[in-house]
Design a binder for these strands. Structure first.
Lengths: 399, 399
DNA sequence: CGTCTATGTCCAACTAGTGAACTCTAAGCT
DNA sequence: AGCTTAGAGTTCACTAGTTGGACATAGACG
């Protein structure tokens, strides 16, 4: 921003380097920082002093039982991040610190027909409550991640057609929430955030290329490519639900026929069980019955798995990820659905692509999206946010 | 490599910055360099002197009719890059300089059944001939890009099952060629290089996310995601040819049924015309006949287009690229095949993904792969290769 | 209790970029 | 033609910032 290529920028880069190292490791001694960053001990000494004076890090006199090492960690009040997830039936909020620790988390039911204003009111109150519970100053919010169950237009930030929250179409959630909370808000759809959450905290740890398949009322995928969420130039990447499996299959809400969604999503699958199991079944209920041994539900879940597997096979041929994580209610079915998925993938994907693929259930269950929102806030924050003291002074100004 | 975070590394980064600016623009005055890089005029002055002494750039006293501006450009003999493409029936070699200019290019027929040793002999001779034609010192080769028509194992660099060059399976082409030429060789498959070539020089200029579909004896895709070739963790991304279109379709060489390839690749399509048009048709011939109005060939090409469109629609739903470029012999058919592709995409892809997609024929024809190999060599080179004088002294040592 | 060793700090040396002053050259004006 | 002007490139003194080495510190080990 100031001197793009020199000296002070080098210093800044080194500051960020140290902050990142500390953030990733939780806490480090200066000597360790020097080793991991490659900087000299003297430089680290200077930088740590500067950061300490700025309030970004804390130096705890001596904790480990070594010779004498002062461990450096991000100061507890250096900043917090907030994740908010609007789901089909619920609202979840999580508060975390910069060391990737979740400090508080809560969810409450949300009426599908609620207006966006009502939703934001609820979210705002819940955020306030959790922040108070953690006892941190509101001015320390470094960023907010927001998850919404529908496509976000990349340029305008407008929420597109969401069959899930009809009252929200056309709103600009990030904008609105930023005005309410006064901090930067980053928004993404639920599938992408689920992918991010599972990658940072769940079944995708250590993997740089993965697809997170979320099966709920629709079917969507979040793609992580080379460690980053891939949204595509138009922002609609990952629409695995509308891959065509059968050109003359059932008509889908998107207007085509035989989309994967028509074989796997709750709204199309549940009716199959109506005559035998009654009308007020939910996907959760089907999964529970299947686990208890109900043959009809088992069959339906296996069929869903096979179809998802076909879609995953296509995805696998095109992208060759190293892991596929299954999320949503359906993941609770475990092997009942994963088995058929793997079988389908093995059958339809080319062997060299399928060989190194692992298909796993999500480890975070319904929390994947909120935690992903938290991770989004953390990753969008950049390491420099902590340096300029904007957090300790006041909330960042609008731009 | 030496001092990862400081001072000298900053200097090096600034050197690279200048080199990159010059390379991209072709030639610049020092003042322009200062403006585009953000460095101060004094620094640029020093850096240019250093680069000039090192032989990396040339300073032509005064060429433009301004006040007095010395234009800086990469010295003509700063380095050259070589692209080599082994195709089904031919071998192509191109020589370019660091300013993205193609200096020489030639192709010759290659026998499908030739051994890899024979192929390399031919390639080596052709490379020598072209280099001599350009009159540059062999020691100035900065890098070589190599294209092979088959999957390359990421870790070992081994060429996997290629139905096109049977004698090559199990060889390590990059390794072998490096031993022969004595410089770093970067290898990739033809579809990926075609994508790269079209992105740098052809129909993909200015686009950061594109898919290059190559229809020849097989069907493959090269994916460019965020400006870089995406190979996937296992190196087999882009296998669009084996997306399943019809579970009970024709048996494919991969062992599945109804793969896109069975509806689009030459080996499956040409037999359809045997009884009506004779047995020694090639894809080129079919395209030519179609353009001349032959209804059977037109129909076949349109059908191929529709099926490719289905595959592209799936790809589009998953990845949402902004452009799809069609390569291979089939691209010569122009609207005869693009029309049906677009129609299929419009029908099967979700509208929001299809809306901003453009489907174009490749602009480079059969040259896409060699030029892509050239681009690969350029991009893998990094901007620092030019700095350490390794090129001016001698060929880089093996490692 | 002395020695050892790794940690953190301080200082002088050195590297490298910057602003300001300066020179140079061609264009434009009188 | 001669003067002025303005942008280009260079030089120089200054400053920011990293580094290696010397030094102080404090627990571990014998």
């Amino acid at each position: 921003m100031e001197t793009p290529g020199s000296q002070s920028s080098l210093h800044r880069a080194n500051l960020e380097r140290v902050v990142r190292a500390v953030r990733l490791a939780g806490s480090l001694t200066q000597a360790e920082i020097a080793r991991t960053t490659g900087l000299s001990a003297a430089t680290v000494s200077n930088i740590v002093r500067e950061l300490k004076d700025g309030g970004t890090v804390e130096v705890t006199p001596t904790s480990a039982g070594g010779r004498r090492a002062r461990s450096v960690s991000l100061s507890g009040d250096a900043g917090i991040v907030i994740g908010i997830d609007f789901g089909h039936t619920h609202l979840r909020v999580a508060v975390g610190n910069l060391a990737h620790q979740v400090l508080a988390e809560e969810s409450e039911p949300l009426d599908v027909d609620a207006s966006s204003a009502q939703g934001f009111d609820r979210a705002e109150r819940l955020v306030s409550r959790l922040i108070e519970a953690t006892g941190v100053d509101r001015g320390k919010i470094a960023g907010v991640g927001l998850g919404v169950p529908g496509p976000i237009d990349v340029e305008s930030g407008t929420l597109g057609s969401s069959a899930i929250l009809p009252g929200w179409i056309g709103t600009r959630p990030a904008e609105e929430l930023r005005e309410r909370l006064g901090v930067a808000v980053h928004v993404d759809n639920d599938a992408n955030l689920g992918a991010l959450g599972e990658m940072v905290w769940g079944s995708g740890k250590g993997v740089r290329d993965l697809a997170y398949i979320k099966v709920a009322s629709g079917v969507g995928a979040g793609l992580v490519i080379d460690g980053k969420i891939y949204r595509g130039p138009g922002g609609t990447a990952g629409e695995i639900g509308h891959i065509t499996l059968d050109e003359s299959g059932p008509v889908c809400r998107c207007g085509n026929r035989g989309c994967l969604e028509t074989f796997a999503a709750a709204r199309y699958v549940l009716p199959l069980l109506q005559s035998s199991h009654g009308t007020d079944l939910t996907m959760e209920g089907v999964v529970r019955l299947a686990r208890d041994g109900d043959p009809g539900c088992r069959r339906v879940i296996a069929d869903v798995g096979r179809h998802i597997g076909s879609g995953v096979a296509n995805l696998c041929n095109l992208l060759n990820p190293s892991r596929v994580v299954l999320g949503g209610d359906l993941a609770e079915a475990g092997e009942l659905v994963l088995g058929p998925i793997r079988e389908s993938v093995g059958r339809y994907a080319i062997p060299s692509a399928a060989r190194q693929l692992s298909v796993l259930p999500g480890a975070l269950g319904g929390r994947a999206e909120v935690l992903g929102a938290l991770a989004l806030a953390l990753s969008e924050m950049g390491d420099s946010t902590l340096l300029d003291g904007s957090l300790t002074a006041a909330a960042p100004a609008f731009t």
